[in-house]
Design a protein around this nucleic acid. Structure first.
Lengths: 339, 339
DNA sequence: ATCACAAATGCAAGCGCTTACATTGGCGCT
DNA sequence: AGCGCCAATGTAAGCGCTTGCATTTGTGAT
């Protein structure tokens, strides 16, 4: 037992317990395969030495890492944080570890990170949305890495998805807005390039307009990136239109908060002069005044279900099955009747 | 070139380029050691094959992972998110990858995660706060894993820290509060067990009281976990005290937001009847109405500096050096003179 | 006791890479 | 032309683990 200043190995444990490394390995991975007496001896050697298996060696030998990778567009806001937290809790319960990276909404960055995660031996991947180069799905398929797509639902894609129908969710909200008499609608959307969620949401508004006999072309659309300040700027831009919209449907709550703040600054009363809505129902939506009418998304449920699905795919080798979750409109103060 | 359905290895590349694996490895890790012509041949083989080095094998052979681990108390709020984002950007620039896990404020979970990260070959660790079993620092020391502590500053600890003086920061704020005539103070704090930041902040308030001749014992303290709802509940509790405090200094902005919301609900006017302050200066602090007087912490700078320090320790083997950042009080609407 | 057979354990071959050390070849110099 | 030297490349030994297969040990039935 050399008191070497570096981590003990399987070999050290084996020697101390007077067994072979194979037995120690089995003790750790499949305890019932080794008889009680030996196991006790091994286990005490393990704890006396403070042994922790070397992960890289284990992955290499077993070709299995019990690691799941997730690539999300951004960590800087609550939307993904909450769903991801649930995802991580679930996989942790099942003995997996989560590796997260964020792509900053850049497709190339995402692709690189996918490769990195695969090179790190991820057993499966969680991706957000369907929009990406099909070659990526081919690659993953070839490497036999199961993938689940979340935050979006579509049954006919190359990977199963656990999410909700963005278009329909937004349509339901737009219907309510229109029922309140609004005819001049506008939307502040996230960038639609490479972002199916954003596109579907705009589409949902258009669907509702069409259904209700409003000319689709009359929808003013401003696209911007995901920040409160940008939501504010977009709102200002919309308010300087010759014909001010009476309702601004925002692609997410963050943008809506920016709009609300800008309205306050411009002395525009919400919802008396203009109505504003959000999407996601993050905490901020109920904190802000006026509180936000928005679409509630079951983030935690989505994260959990995606985890369950992905682990099932990993462990049974199944090709997975898409799951569609329900959203619902939450009525708060920022939406009122058209004036 | 067998079109095997699994990832190409160094060997495949070497064969295709007509060189040895050693040369390929050198091309990838230290290109100047191989002559231009060979390198070109190797590189084109790499890209034709779509080769990505197997991470586990690399770590195992090189005993170096270019991975840094960070364990934060929670991912669910903006405080750590922002600093961590900066940390990650900086290490990414220097060619490292970040592995994050959250301990949910549980010391045992943190300890387990530290071991996990070490087993995964992390080259260094970022930890939050100094409060933890000294054995952990011993262990890390024995494994020769550099550690930097952030979000807290203390020069006499077992690990260098990059942070700010929580006590002094809070004291500065409390001074202002007292100068405004408040004498009945209360604080809503995060749980102090295992959380030096929380403890130091309370201490800061006491220091200011002492300095200004206020009886320290008169400070009402409520401890609770990190959620808006809990901040609200704590505020309600404080308001039902026989002698209502006139200023409630919250341990962080999230708790303060809860307090503000509860005041609104109870019809207590802020800051006319009661003043409320926060700590951290997260985005929410300026979004909420009344906006929060709070302590601004240079999160991004802290993250970046911590990254620089840690990488320096990893690469030069130095023992590191503590760095103290400045905070400053941001005056907004939620603090007013005592009535 | 003895034998057949199953359960427990050991042996050793990799997993895909890095790197110390050995070998080769090209160059300038005499 | 011959020599020494250094840059470029190759050889092969691990890194710490898992696991198929071989071997040993223990069990119950005869």
């Amino acid at each position: 037992m050399s008191k070497n200043r570096s981590a003990p190995t399987l070999d050290d444990v084996a020697r101390k317990a007077g067994v072979s490394t194979a037995t120690v390995s089995r003790c750790l991975n499949d305890p019932k395969r080794v008889v009680e007496a030996t196991r006790a001896r091994v286990m005490s050697a393990v704890s006396e030495l403070g042994y922790t298996p070397n992960f890289a060696a284990r992955v290499m030998a077993a070709k299995r890492s019990f690691t799941i990778g997730a690539i999300i567009p951004t960590m800087e806001n609550a939307i993904f944080a909450r769903g991801l937290q649930a995802f991580q809790e679930e996989i942790h319960n099942q003995g997996y570890t989560l590796l997260v990276s964020s792509s900053a909404y850049q497709p190339e960055a995402e692709e690189e990170q996918i490769r990195t995660l695969v090179a790190r031996g991820a057993d499966g991947l969680l991706l957000i949305g369907h929009d990406r180069d099909p070659r990526i799905f081919d690659y993953l398929d070839r490497q036999k890495i199961p993938v689940v797509v979340a935050w979006s639902f579509a049954s006919n894609q190359s990977a199963p998805s656990v999410g909700f129908d963005n278009s329909q969710a937004m349509q339901a909200l737009a219907e309510q807005v229109i029922k309140l008499g609004h005819t001049r609608l506008a939307t502040i959307s996230a960038l639609t390039k490479g972002n199916d969620r954003a596109r579907f949401r705009i589409e949902g508004i258009r669907d509702a307009m069409r259904t209700n006999g409003l000319p689709e072309a009359s929808l003013s659309v401003v696209e911007t990136t995901y920040e409160i300040e940008n939501g504010a700027a977009a709102f200002e831009q919309l308010m300087s239109l010759p014909q001010r919209p009476t309702a601004v449907l925002c692609g997410n709550d963050v943008l809506a908060v920016g709009a609300v703040r800008q309205a306050e600054k411009m002395g525009i009363s919400i919802p008396d002069e203009v109505s504003i809505t959000g999407f996601d129902d993050i905490e901020l939506a109920r904190i802000i005044r006026p509180s936000l009418t928005t679409v509630h998304v079951p983030h935690r449920e989505m994260g959990r279900k995606a985890a369950i699905e992905l682990i099932d795919m990993i462990e049974t080798g199944s090709t997975g099955q898409s799951l569609r979750l329900e959203t619902n409109v939450i009525n708060r103060e920022s939406l009122g009747p058209a004036t």
